[in-house]
């Protein structure tokens, strides 16, 4: 993709696929899937250490930090206050100003709480973070986050972990058309065609976890997602043909042969 790079704030990437680290059958499979995905950014969550068993390895042992940029998230937070403290802890832990801001409003849908997300985004931007907020497919909320100084907006394609694909392509298109920061579709992509469809809408990148980790063969699916993201991006840049209701043959309709008895 050469010059067609993804720019998020001061960061630049060749890959337009961001992948998670959750739900893999093993750390080895996760590591192989990350390699197959071609991703340059991987997400991690922040949690309390286990006081009963603090020994043993950590997730970071399985992420080559010379190869991958780590994007910590605030998953599990229900309030701006929790999210801001989680982000500040992540910054100290991982020495990054990147944060995937996630403030959820409901355990069943895992939809974001827009009010708390906006409040947290404002505080984090003012605190010097490069903020990538997870948000609903709401053009107004996306614009508000952009105005607060978020480096990207990350509307969901469908509920987290649902694999339903892009449920509202028209909203995603509207968000993209109006945005002046990268639009990263986050959550809901279930298979390669979902990824291609999302990218064909013109969004700048995709963030996914379950679609790869819960495939029967996560490493193969990671490769499929990589190619789907590239295909979708190239199709978007190429510009698709206009749709027609009726057929339009590709072969000339003149100078056809005739059989004996016809003129």
């Amino acid at each position: 993709m050469g010059a067609d790079r993804l720019q998020i704030g001061k960061y630049e990437f060749d890959s337009r696929l961001i992948v998670g680290t959750g739900k893999y059958p093993s750390m080895e499979v996760m590591r192989a899937a990350h390699a197959a995905s071609g991703a340059e950014v991987v997400t991690v969550a922040i949690r309390r250490i286990n006081l009963d068993d603090a020994h043993g390895g950590t997730l970071l042992d399985y992420i080559d930090r010379s190869r991958y940029t780590i994007l910590p998230n605030t998953a599990g937070c229900y309030s701006a206050k929790e999210a801001v403290l989680t982000a500040q802890l992540a910054r100290e832990l991982l020495e990054t100003d990147l944060i995937k801001l996630e403030v959820i409003g409901d355990a069943q849908t895992l939809h974001p709480d827009p009010r708390e997300t906006l409040a947290a985004a404002e505080q984090l931007v003012n605190d010097g973070f490069t903020v990538l907020p997870y948000i609903g497919d709401d053009p107004i909320a996306c614009k508000q986050l952009e105005k607060l100084g978020c480096a990207a907006v990350m509307p969901l394609a469908a509920p987290i972990g649902s694999g339903l694909g892009v449920c509202n392509p028209y909203s995603i298109r509207i968000i993209k058309e109006r945005a002046c920061v990268p639009v990263i579709v986050d959550a809901g992509v279930g298979t390669a065609s979902d990824a291609a469809i999302a990218m064909e809408l013109g969004v700048d990148a995709l963030l996914m976890n379950t679609g790869i980790a819960k495939a029967r063969d996560p490493v193969l699916m990671a490769s499929a997602m990589k190619h789907a993201v590239i295909a979708g991006r190239q199709a978007f840049l190429a510009g698709r043909m206009e749709k027609r209701l009726y057929a339009s043959g590709s072969s000339p309709m003149k100078d056809l042969i005739s059989t004996a008895g016809q003129s």
């Binding site: 922040i46 309390r48 950590t58 780590i70 832990l93 991982l94 987290i160 963030l207 976890n209």
Partner: peptide, 8 residues
């Protein structure tokens, strides 16, 4: 006291 764990 926190650490990084697997997540999306």
């Amino acid at each position: 006291i926190i650490e990084a764990v697997a997540g999306g």
